[in-house]
Amino acid sequence: MYNPTVARLTYRAVLGRRRAAILFVLPGLLLLIAAAVRGFNGADDQVAADVLGGFAIATMVPLIGVIAGTGSIGPEIDDGSIVYLLAKPVKRPTIIFTKLIVAIAVTMAFSAVPTFIAGYILNGNGQQVAIAYTVAALVASIAYSALFLLLGTVSRHAVVIGLVYALVWETLFGSLVPGARTLSVQQWSLALAEKIGGEGLIGSDVGLPAAVALLAGVTVAATWYAGQKLRVLKLAGEE
């Protein structure tokens, strides 16, 4: 199921592109904000939860998911170089699964790790806030990677669509419109954080069982469908 050569090529493609700069800028920004808040405000559990929930989980994780998820397949399909993977006796779902693992690893590394560090900077993991949001970032990384990998497989405008989803749907609607919240990776992952964090600090609109089922369902369905799409992929740029 996992092909190390595909993984190596994917890592170099995702981390070697100019877009990868965002992977470093966003976590850097989070740590900067965390340090500034702690410096000016001192340690405060509610403020820590607001910063991690408002910036790390609502903005940073989905954006990094877009870069890593679409970046692990989109550019190869766009320029046609994916033909070198497709013209091999390697099962197409294996290619997708491997790329998913890479996207998850990159998203986790660049979102969950800085979230954890920022949590410690903000209030020293008081009320388990750092751990709670780190777990949320980890599970959200999986679902976002699968969703954006599928997007990168089916659309040439994956980055734009991904950004619109991440910024408009997750950040804006997900935070403001109640109905949209049930269909939001952010809320599902927050359902986990809610259980871990201190009483009343973290809120989610989705119950835990539903959240876990939705996270798992979306991840599996998106990955399966991406594998099917790759089996019948038409290479662009034909007559």
Binding site: L9, R12, A13, G16, D79, G80, S81, V83, Y84, G237
Partner: peptide, 8 residues
Amino acid sequence: REAMYDFL
């Protein structure tokens, strides 16, 4: 097509 893994 020209495109291959140019970074390799």
